[in-house]
Amino acid sequence: MPTGSVGQRVASMSPATVKYLVAGLVLVMFVLAVGHLYVIPGLTSRAFGLPLWVYVEVVVVAVLLVIAWIVVQLITSRREAVN
């Protein structure tokens, strides 16, 4: 089992695994980014002058940012391992 930092663990993965992982996460991002636009518009009741869909969207955007961070870290770690 690989141990150590994220970079070391990613370096120990095969290139194909990293690619599939990145592609999968980007797909999740895209599905979440598009999907929430269809799901949340019904949340029209308001709190503090803003509709609920805005609060939900802020959470979705935060989740997307976290996934984006993981994607960038995966790509970077893989490149560093190759170089």
């Binding site: 980014a33 955007v61 994607v71 960038v72």
Partner: peptide, 13 residues
């Protein structure tokens, strides 16, 4: 907001 999230992917790569 979605565009700003996507920018991070471009900035980071």
């Amino acid at each position: 907001a979605l565009a700003a999230v996507f920018y991070t992917l471009v900035f980071g790569t």
